[in-house]
Design a protein around this nucleic acid. Structure first.
Lengths: 128, 128
DNA sequence: AGCGAGCTTTACGTTAACGTAAAGTAGCCG
DNA sequence: CGGCTACTTTACGTTAACGTAAAGCTCGCT
């Protein structure tokens, strides 16, 4: 028998409210089982939550996150599906590489600004 | 005299509506001058718009983007401000490096999935 | 003078992603 | 049994980031 989790437990682990976790269920992002009326989450649900959080850190909408997550559940027996799948992956990769470039640009600028500042600061410190 | 731009011109260039451009002005992100009643945008406004778009691609809110943009306008004469400034830069860098890591993780997975798919696909192609 | 194109302000509408409050249930503890 | 705690459903509220519609200026053309 595999480990299970309660809703409060998972919410705390990921730093969100239980409302949020239920909301993601409404949106079809996770599908916990029930034990009586209570929700019971599997390790798989937990992995999905982790993926959701990662997506959110990147500014994806829940719909986009759903599309990404569901990639893992594609049936690899149909050739047309496989081709579509590869197409989607390509699109996603393009966007992500753009984002990565954006980040590297900003990081470079930040580093430049930082150097400039520390230098200015040490100048002032010395003069005094 | 330096180049100027109309609102429709800039909107088209960045793929947004004029409403959006005016909205950013309301939020204090850009401050075009007026020529009679009409808005006139400088190259500086254009640069800011470019920065805004980059921020949006990274999933930042307009408030966060404003904070970032205003970093460029800090007065470098006050030591306390400089120190604060360096602090903000540090925070930003941490977040960005996290995002970058997220992206690299997903990209790695995408590549794995892609290889797996193309391989599956060529197998099916050969068997037929 | 009339008119259309392009701009303006004003203001109400919309969507996503939850927050928050109300009211009910199920299990355990003294 | 009463009460607490943790969960549940239902439903209305909120914020960000615009969309969209209405009504009015101004310039240039015919």
């Amino acid at each position: 028998m595999t480990e299970t989790f309660g809703i409060a437990e998972l919410a705390k682990e990921f730093g969100v409210t239980t409302r949020t976790v239920r909301f993601y269920e409404d949106k079809g992002l996770i599908s916990p089982t029930r034990e009586g009326q209570r929700r019971v989450y599997s390790p798989r649900d937990r992995v999905r939550l982790r993926l959701i959080m990662r997506g959110k850190r990147l500014g994806l909408t829940l719909d986009e996150i759903a599309e990404l997550i569901n990639l893992y559940d594609v049936d690899p027996s149909e050739v047309t599906q496989l081709k579509q799948f590869i197409g989607v992956i390509h699109e996603r990769k393009t966007v992500l590489e753009g984002q990565k470039q954006d980040i590297e640009d900003i990081l470079a600028e930040m580093n430049r600004l930082e150097r400039q500042c520390t230098q200015l600061l040490s100048q002032k410190q010395n003069k005094k």
